[in-house]
């Protein structure tokens, strides 16, 4: 499977989608000019990955900031992983938030209430 590695900028996150090394990670800031264009390749990659996923998938989010336009795209990503989980695979979301960033912790908790994937919260 292709590896997607996108280096983050001040308005787009770092994205690593690497099935072979079992690394799926979104980190940094997300307020892209065009959310759909930015996230579509990642969503397509996850759909493809879902056809033959690793026995255990850790989905890492280590975001400093995302705008509301991105929040919907992140939910779409999580829903794709929920599909993978529902097909009998092991999926866990690792949600990182800065120690003093209650809003980011709360955002993670909200996503965990919407999707059926277990979340592990980590402050850093």
């Amino acid at each position: 499977m292709d590896v997607i590695k996108i280096k983050g900028t001040d308005d787009t996150p770092n994205v690593i989608l690497d099935a072979e090394n079992n690394i799926i990670e979104f980190s940094g800031r997300s307020l892209p000019e065009d959310v759909v264009t930015f996230y579509t390749p990642a969503i397509q990659w996850i759909e493809e990955y879902g056809k033959n996923p690793n026995p255990k998938t850790n989905v890492i989010f280590r975001l400093e900031y995302f705008n509301t336009a991105s929040s919907k795209a992140l939910l779409d990503i999580l829903l794709k992983f929920e599909d993978i989980l529902n097909e009998g695979n092991d999926v866990v979301v690792q949600w990182y938030y800065q120690e003093d960033d209650e809003d980011m912790l709360e955002a993670g908790e909200e996503y965990s209430e919407i999707v059926d994937i277990p979340f592990e919260m980590h402050s850093y």
Partner: peptide, 13 residues
Amino acid sequence: KELFKKQMREGSV
């Protein structure tokens, strides 16, 4: 919070 979650689920990106 509930309204935000609802709109996020229902709205399209």
